[in-house]
Amino acid sequence: MSVTGESLRRFLLRWSGVAVFLAAWEVAPRLDWIDPYFVPPFSTVLREAGVMFRDGTLGMHLVVSLWRAVAGLLTAILIGMPVGFLLGRRLVGVEQALRPILTVLSQVNPFSLLPVFLLFFGIGETAKVAVVSWVSLWPVMSFTITATRNVDPAQIRTALSMGISRLDLYCKVVLPAALPTIFTGMRVGAGLTFLILVAAEMLGSSAGLGYLVHNSAMNYLIPRIYAGATFIVVLGFLLNRLLLHVERRLSGVWEAGAFVTGPAGPAGAARLPGPAVSVAALGAVLIFIVFGGLEVSRINREAASYPSEALKHFGHIGQPVDR
């Protein structure tokens, strides 16, 4: 693909806002419009990020946070999808009866549950993963219920008319037809997950990106706060963009499956990745869960060997320093 003048102009326009913001961030502290102690210039923050990247701090906390997010999301999917399938197609009456309870449970604040989880599971990883799963469980489940219920009846009639077995109907028709909507549920869950995880890590943790920022604040390492925060923002942005991209691609292919008249689309415009890609992605997630888990427990052991401020579960924000 060639970058035409028009698309380049568009690109520059779209990112001009960010550029102006970063320029202001650089210039304002330098000219002493705001106190550079509280708001260090962007280049200082960037340099700090570079230092953390080189000494491995950033990578370590990133692995911990990502592992928690993936483990939590995976747990939510493993519970939410089968239950959503059952409530969506097999136990329709049960779902209707349970709806008020499910609605209330989905509104239960994850942070008010955090103490309960901490009591339940102890201070280890399980409590944090449980909070994350709790948050993403509800979108995954409710989107799965909607998705399985809204499968095109014509697709089901066609399959049934061929005398399809119930198992095949689920595996070959209902599941793939419901996939894009289920994926939307996963994206919504993942978005919330990231937000909540970082907050949970600030509340009681000895590693992770949220802890990194919190710990920097406790020790008045101000450029570090900004570096960590910027990293979290960019990571969340990229994650959101990636998931949106996958979702659009899926639904772009799916929606055109039924009842659309009109000209043929451009050949090969949006192909689905082959099964190899899906298998590879799944394998990568599993490997990450296993080896990431080993790494996380090692990091936790190391953190435990030198007690620090952060091991207090509810750290308090330090008073602002005197100017």
Partner: peptide
Amino acid sequence: LFAQANPLILAHI
């Protein structure tokens, strides 16, 4: 990007 900025992180600032 701003929407991604977790307010608890901003809290310190």
